[in-house]
Design a protein around this nucleic acid. Structure first.
Lengths: 282, 282
DNA sequence: CAAGAAATGGAATAAAAATTCTAAAGATAA
DNA sequence: TTATCTTTAGAATTTTTATTCCATTTCTTG
C-alpha cells in the first residue's frame, strides 16, 4: 500500500512542467511499462487529458491498471488525479490563477483571512482583464467608437452593479468634451431622462447578469426609436444584444458572490478616449 | 424518441463555431432552461469540455437531465457527444493562441490604433493590480475592516473620478446588509448628508490626485467630530492622511491622461466583503 | 379559462470508467 | 539454480457518470 518511488519529501508535481521534469529525471530508473507510459504521456498530452483509462491504455500498449500504477508511483491518488494536471494545462492560459482562486474559495469554510480576500479579488480582476483581451474584437471595438463618435449626445445607461461604469463614462466624456447624459434614474425618472434622445444621438447601455430589467427596457425603447445602441454586456444571450447595433463582450470573473469590474473600466476608458479622438479627426 | 428541434435537413454542428452560431440563432426560440444552458456553455466552454454532467449542471443551475435534453435538442446523441465538440475546440485552440494575438495586432489601420488603446488601458489596469499586491499591508487592511465593522452606519465619500468607487461601495454594502450612506453631493448637499454622522459611525473617504477639495474638507470635518475615518488614497502626502485613522495606499497606473481604477475596485470589494464577514462574526 | 402540449425536476437505472486484487511472469542476487 | 522481491496482465469490483423515465409544473392555444 505504500508508495514506492515517491519519497515523502518529494512534492507531487501540481503543474505540467514539474511533472515533465520529474518524468525526465526518473527516466532511467523506471520499470519498462511505466517508462513506456511516461514517454507516451509526454508525447501525447492531449490524449492523456481527454482520454479514458481504457482508451489511453490501448493506445499506449499497456493494461489499464498500469495507468493507475503509473500515477501512484508518482505520488498521485490515482489516474484521475494525474489526469487533472494534463487538463489544467489545456484549460486556460493562466491555469495557476484558476487554481489559486479555487484554493482560496475552498478555504472559505473556515474564516477567510482578510489578506486572502484581497488577493482573491485582485486575482479575479486580473483574470477578467486577460479574458477581455480575447473577447473584444478590434473590429467591433472600432465600430462601437464609430457609432459613438457620430452621435450628437451620448446617453449613458447602466443600473445597480454597473452604475459605477456609466458614472465613470459621464466623468470621462465630460473631461474629453463629449456631450453625454448620465441616466441615473433619480426619482425613477429614467424614461423621461432618455425621452429627449433622437436618431442623431446614441445610447451606451451596460448590463451584466442578472440583467437589470430597466436597462434592457430602455435600450429596447431606444432601438425602437432608431437611436443607435452600443451595448457592453457579458454574453450573446444578454437581452441587450437584440437591441444593440454594436455590442462588446466582457465576461468578468468573480470571487465569492462578487464580480470584478476591472475589465469593464479598462474598456470604458478606451472607448471614451477612442471616441473623443475619432471626433477630433472629423 | 424523435428529436424535436433539429429538423432532418439541419446538419448537427461538428465544430465549435457552427455550434455557437446555431445557439445564437436559436436564442429566441429556446425554452428557459435550455437558453440558460446555452448561455452558460458559451460563457464557460472549458467547464463544459472538462466537467461532468452533475458538476456542470450545478454550476449552471439546472438539473443533470437538462444537459442531456439540451444536447438532444441540438441533434446530438447525448451530452457526451456534445461535449466532444467542446473538447475538440480546446485541442485545436491551444497551439495557435500566439498566432491569434499576432493577427490581432496586424489587423488593418484604424483597428490597430483602437486595439492598442484598449491594450494600453488593460495593461495599465494589470499594472495597478500588481502594485497593489505590494502596497496594501495586511495589517492596515485588517484595521480598516475592524474600524468599518464597528461602525453603526458607514458614510461613503468620493467625488469626481472616484465617485464610481463609492457608488460601488453603496451597492456592495447594501447587498451585504451593511448600513451605508452614499454622499452624492446632490444639489450640493454633501455637508448636510454627512451632518447626521456620529462617533459611532465611520467615514470611508476616497480621493486621488488631484484631490477633490470637498472630499478632503468633509473628511477633516468628520475627524474633528471624532468620527473614525478610513481613507483610500494614493500617497502619504494626500490631504486625507491627516484626517484618517487608517489609510490604505493604492497607486493606480495611467495610460495617457486617464488612470486605472481596477485596483481601487478590487480593494473595494475585498473591504466590503471583509467588513460584512467581520460583523457576522461578532 | 380550460385542454393539450411542452418543458422541467428529481429519482431510478444503465453505462462507463477507474480502481483493486491476485496469480503469474520477470528480474535480482546469493 | 533457487529464493525472493518486483513488476505485470487480466479479471473482478467499486465508483463515478450519463441517461432514462415519469410525475408535476409551466406555457400555448383555441
Amino acid at each position: 500500500m505504500e508508495e514506492r518511488s515517491a519519497s515523502v519529501t518529494d512534492a507531487i508535481p501540481e503543474d505540467f512542467e514539474s511533472l515533465r521534469a520529474l518524468l525526465l529525471a526518473r527516466r532511467d530508473t523506471m520499470p519498462k511499462r511505466l517508462k513506456q507510459l511516461a514517454a507516451f504521456a509526454l508525447d501525447h498530452p492531449e490524449e492523456v487529458a481527454f482520454g479514458t483509462v481504457a482508451g489511453i491504455a490501448e493506445h499506449a500498449g499497456v493494461q489499464p491498471s498500469t495507468l493507475v500504477r503509473f500515477a501512484k508511483s508518482l505520488g498521485y491518488d490515482g489516474f484521475s488525479h494525474l489526469q487533472q494536471i494534463f487538463r489544467d494545462r489545456l484549460r486556460e492560459r493562466f491555469p495557476d490563477y484558476r487554481e489559486r482562486l479555487r484554493v482560496l474559495r475552498d478555504s472559505e469554510g473556515a474564516h477567510v483571512h482578510s489578506a486572502s480576500l484581497l488577493e482573491g479579488f485582485t486575482d479575479a480582476a486580473a483574470i477578467s482583464l486577460d479574458r477581455m483581451r480575447e473577447s473584444v474584437r478590434p473590429e467591433e471595438f472600432s465600430r462601437a467608437i464609430e457609432t459613438l463618435a457620430k452621435a450628437d449626445t451620448i446617453y449613458l445607461l447602466g443600473a445597480r452593479r454597473v452604475f459605477p461604469v456609466s458614472a465613470y463614462f459621464a466623468y470621462a466624456f465630460g473631461k474629453l468634451g463629449v456631450r453625454a447624459i448620465l441616466i441615473d434614474h433619480i426619482a425613477q425618472l429614467g424614461p423621461e431622462q432618455l425621452a429627449t434622445a433622437t436618431e442623431r444621438d446614441a445610447v451606451l447601455a451596460i448590463s451584466f447578469t442578472p440583467y437589470s430589467p430597466v436597462t434592457a427596457d430602455l435600450a429596447a425603447a431606444a432601438a425602437r426609436k432608431n437611436i443607435p445602441v452600443v451595448a457592453i454586456t457579458d454574453s450573446a444571450f444578454s437581452p441587450l444584444v437584440t437591441s444593440a447595433d454594436v455590442w462588446l463582450e466582457v465576461a468578468e470573473a468573480d470571487f465569492g458572490a462578487f464580480r470584478s469590474l476591472s475589465a469593464s473600466f479598462a474598456l470604458a476608458m478606451a472607448l471614451a478616449v477612442g471616441t473623443a479622438e475619432r471626433r477630433a479627426e472629423a
